[in-house]
């Protein structure tokens, strides 16, 4: 209802009610005797007063109050949403940080592993080298020993031949063709010779 109409009708009703009540136009004394004290003039005036009062109170107080509450609510909601945003941002930052920390840790561990592996390889190669050198040395020593032994065997064989010759000379007590005898003796020795080592 347009407010102007409400105000005018309200004022008119107020005065009409005043007139009806003070002039006692409507007689309800029967009702009053029954315990229902009703005065329609006052009712009419009340309706008029209320018609004026409702828009007045609405614009005087209730509308500003509603507006203030609304503003405050939106402000609160804004603050809350901002806080929520900040919170999510912080959470994302935290997870990022944690991820980076885990990354760094993994990288460090990997590096350590690599170092260990390298050291192990180095050790293995060093050991292999040492073993091979030792083997070589042992082999050379064996070779030398063999050569010495062969040399010794050769010397012994010569000595034996000479001794045999000398023994034979002494036995035969005669000069024989040395060349031929030696040949015989060597043939003999070859026949009795035990294979070396």
């Amino acid at each position: 209802m347009p407010i102007g109409v409400a105000l005018i009708v309200g004022a008119a009703l107020m005065f009409a009610g005043m007139y009806v009540s003070t002039a006692k136009l409507i007689d309800l004394s029967a009702l009053a005797e029954q315990g229902i004290p009703l005065d329609l003039g006052k009712t009419i005036a009340t309706v008029g007063v209320l018609l004026i009062l409702f828009p007045v109170i609405k614009f005087f107080f209730v509308a500003p109050l509603m507006e203030a509450i609304q503003t405050r609510n939106t402000e609160l909601e804004k603050t809350f949403s901002e806080a929520e945003e900040l919170r999510t941002e912080m959470a994302s930052m935290k997870s990022d940080y944690e991820r980076r920390l885990a990354d760094t840790e993994a990288k460090a561990r990997e590096q350590i592993q690599a170092q260990i592996r390298e050291a192990q390889e180095l050790r293995k190669s060093l050991m292999a080298e040492a073993t091979s050198r030792a083997d070589e040395m042992v082999k050379r020593a064996q070779d030398e020993i063999e050569a010495e032994r062969q040399k010794a065997l050769g010397g012994i064989r010569l000595q034996v031949a000479n001794l045999s010759l000398m023994a034979a000379e002494k036995i035969l007590k005669e000069s024989v063709d040395t060349e031929r005898n030696r040949k015989i003796v060597e043939e003999f020795i070859d026949t009795v010779e035990v294979p070396a080592s």
Partner: peptide
């Protein structure tokens, strides 16, 4: 007052 209440 009944009259006021009736108006209300």
């Amino acid at each position: 007052d009944l009259s006021f209440n009736l108006g209300l």
